[in-house]
């Protein structure tokens, strides 16, 4: 199959395309958000790795000064949000693929979603606390 025909051929029915929703009842939302957060994470992760590598071994005062500066704090909050959104979406698919017991699967999905939200909120709160001088 040529690449061209792969791009133009739709596997969905006409009615399905109009409704925009597949069997998961949420259409392409999960797929699209996974790609969108991935795209956002490319520059955010590279920025974070280079910054932290350059500041490796920084002391307490240095860490607070770096995290607390407005541009860094804003970028960190964006990084944290995109990271945990992306992680939640990815772990959800892993759970759905490998856990076949319905009860266990739902328990794992709920656990992962709660854990990712708690971690995101805790890290964002920590960044803001430092930024606002608490």
């Amino acid at each position: 199959m040529s690449e061209n025909s792969m791009r133009s051929t739709s596997m969905r029915s006409t009615l399905g395309r109009v409704r925009h929703l597949g069997s998961a009842k949420e259409g392409v939302h999960h797929w699209w958000m996974q790609r969108l957060t991935a795209l956002a994470l490319v520059p955010l992760v590279l920025w974070f790795v280079v910054s932290v590598a350059g500041l490796a071994g920084m002391d307490y005062a240095g860490a607070l000064a770096w995290i607390g500066s407005p541009s860094v704090a804003i970028t960190l909050v964006l990084l944290i949000g995109a990271t945990f959104y992306h992680a939640q979406l990815g772990l959800q698919v892993v759970i759905e693929d490998y856990i076949h017991n319905e009860g266990l699967k739902i328990a794992a999905l709920v656990l992962v979603k709660f854990a990712m939200i708690i971690l995101a909120v805790a890290s964002i709160f920590a960044v803001l606390k430092i930024a606002f001088g608490g």
């Binding site: 307490y60 995290i67 890290s123």
Partner: peptide
Amino acid sequence: IALAAGVLLLVWWVVAAA
């Protein structure tokens, strides 16, 4: 999966700083 687990260390670092 490993990154989702490893990110706990970074959360620990920033929460500890706060």
